[in-house]
Design a binder for these strands. Structure first.
Lengths: 233, 233
DNA sequence: GCATATTTGTCCGTATGTATA
DNA sequence: CTATACATACGGACAAATATG
């Protein structure tokens, strides 16, 4: 089975640890495994996930698999086509536009009015910026992409709202699917390293208003670049 | 069973319609029924939902029930306590604060910068305002509460983002649980009818900035009133 | 266009671990 | 502490929908 290989590599023991560490349910662990397979790009957008295949690969029952898949469908990582199965989501231009519509409301607002604008909060932003610079220095473009997500996650964390952070996590997970559809991931994030640094410096200087405006402009540019890439696809 | 009565009243036929109208899966329909039972207040916060009881009441299998319950847990309508079962969520003061934290970022931003600020979008807001006034005129305070939710839903719809609208729907569902914990629901929404009308008038006049500021103040007042009510509880 | 095989959606029975009276 | 109730997870079964030859 074409998808059994990467999946079975990544888990080895799901039911085995059940008796020792029952820190979560089996379905949750299955969902975690599949989610990581998707976000890491080993399961590409459009890939089919047959229930039976996952059962044998993961060594769990079909009921458990179905529960995990339902959860991931709710997270928009997978989509369910009735009586046909579940597939890795394939975000189109309309999805990109809507994700950025939501981000352009949430991120600047969190920067501008967030209640968690504290030294530690800003330090988290700085940490993400440095993580990106370090990854770029050694040419790890996958690491740059991850650091970029941490950057935007840290921006929303300035809101101080766990619910908004969770929503942002879903939007960023969708963004990973968008990037996995593109051929040139390496060069995409690099231009934004400098912008991240500048925005972070504004935050460290307490200039929230200008930082928020810069974030909005940043998101506009990123969206335009992505849609342009989609057009040539 | 103490919870079988209201549930069994509300459905009558779940599996029966399966052969005729298969518009959605059984799990989805079960989730819809339970969600409505909760939002309508027939299942109160803290109520327990035993899987077996739901099975017999709804005439579906445990697998289907578990799938539906998982979905509602993801929506924060229910909470799962490992190996103990699922319960209707009991939002505390911290939840109220966080829901309003998120709303105070999203709603004013949607009013201020939303891409769907159109005559039809504003008309939806006006429609919700009128719905509330009509319900209040005949003393239907439950209808006033529902109309109020439609009002805030319409505000976020001005963003033009389906994803933000869905997120808002989750937040409003949590708010219903908050209201169901309070004894005086009737009088709570009434003072806001006038504010809704004023905000709508500002939108109709194109004064988005002042409307957004008014929405922010509105939300602050509502949060304070709710937390005060929680303190005397 | 039709017959067949595959997969989903759903149900049932059962075993085991956990929490509570 | 025992016993009961329940959640968790498994495996098997079948009809219906879909895909395939």
């Amino acid at each position: 089975m074409h998808l059994a290989d990467p999946v079975s590599d990544a888990l080895a023991s799901l039911g085995r640890t059940r008796h020792f560490v029952n820190r979560s349910t089996t379905a949750e662990r299955v969902a975690d495994v599949v989610r990581e397979e998707v976000t890491e790009g080993r399961l590409r957008p459009g890939a089919r996930l047959p229930e039976q295949g996952l059962c044998t690969a993961l060594g769990v029952s079909r009921n458990t698999v179905r529960e995990a898949l339902s959860q991931l469908v709710a997270e928009r990582v997978l989509v369910r086509e009735p009586n046909r199965g579940v597939f890795v989501a394939v975000p189109g231009p309309a999805d990109v536009r809507d994700v950025y519509r939501a981000r352009k409301l949430i991120e600047p607002a969190a920067v501008r009015h967030g209640e968690a604008f504290t030294p530690t909060g800003v330090a988290m932003v700085r940490s993400a910026v440095n993580e990106g610079l370090a990854a770029a220095a050694v040419g790890e473009w996958g690491g740059v992409a991850t650091a970029n997500q941490h950057f935007h996650k840290a921006l929303v964390a300035l809101s101080g709202s766990p619910r908004l952070e969770q929503q942002m996590a879903l939007l960023l997970a969708e963004m990973r699917l968008v990037f996995h559809r593109m051929p040139e991931v390496r060069s995409f994030h690099e231009p934004y390293l400098g912008r991240n640094d500048r925005i972070c410096a504004m935050l460290e200087a307490g200039e929230r208003e200008t930082a928020a405006a810069e974030v909005a402009e940043y998101l506009d540019a990123a969206q335009a670049q992505l849609l342009a890439a989609y057009a040539q696809l």
